[in-house]
Amino acid sequence: MARKALASATNAPRLSLREPRDVTRVEEPHLLDGDHREGELYERASFDGEELAGITLQECVLQGVSLNDAELRGARFIECAFEDLFAPVFRAPRSSWRETSLRSTRWGSAELYDSRLDGVHLDGGKLDYVNFRSARLTDVLVSGCIIGELDLTGVRATRLALQDCTIGTLTLDGAQLKDADLRTSSFRGISGLDGLRGATIDEYQLQLLAPFLADSMGLRVEG
């Protein structure tokens, strides 16, 4: 849940996440593209480079799993709990995530363009580049993450909160935001300032944005 400091007229993400129960541990996990798996636990497994397009995982738990360069295009994750996912290259464009939590994620390049996230909490990860271009984000909380570049180009987001995150570059060209809360997070650079329309920031962030706003308006500031 978002902390009290974020309480305002801006609506916070509505999350109703729960840890999957009564899951069955899979001793020698093997997944195929198009599989539908339900109520399973995968621990310290590697699916590096595997073709997993269109798979569905429902009420599953993944802990310490490596998905480097696995093909997850069109995958569906429903009421899952992920922890310590590792992937220098994470490829899941056009994927669907619903009521799912991800903790301590370590991604290099994450391709999540054209994806849909509903009721998702991404907590405490280190991610170099996250591509959410043209994605639809509803009730999404990103907290305690270090992100090199967060690309929200063309995103449609409702009740999105970036909480206590450190972000290098935030790209918002063509973004459509409603109830997007950016307070408590820091950014070294922002591209596409028009995409900030509909977002909530704090006074300190406004001061940091001043040079970018002046530049976008062609203003010359002299002491």
Rank of each mutant, 00 (worst) to 15 (best):
R188E: 14
G174P: 05
L6H: 05
G34M: 04
D114R: 13
F187G: 04
G125A: 03
E203P: 01
D215S: 09
G64M: 08
C145N: 14
L208F: 07
G54T: 13
V120I: 14
A214C: 11
L62N: 02
D173W: 13
S134H: 14
L172G: 01
M1P: 02
E222P: 00
R136K: 14
G125C: 04
G108T: 00
G49L: 07
T100D: 00
L6I: 03
E59Y: 13
S115L: 02
S16M: 03
D22S: 11
Q176P: 02
S216C: 09
L172N: 02
E50P: 05
D33T: 01
L209R: 11
I146W: 14
R14N: 12
L172P: 04
T153I: 06
Y42K: 01
D202A: 07
L72R: 04
R37H: 14
L62Q: 02
G148Q: 12
R91A: 07
T184G: 01
H36D: 03
K126P: 01
I55W: 11
G119M: 00
G195L: 07
A92Q: 07
G192A: 10
T100R: 02
L57N: 05
W97T: 00
L15F: 10
Q205P: 07
L182V: 02
F82R: 02
R156W: 10
V26W: 12
G49F: 13
R91D: 14
L170T: 00
E51R: 15
M217F: 12
E28H: 15
G174I: 00
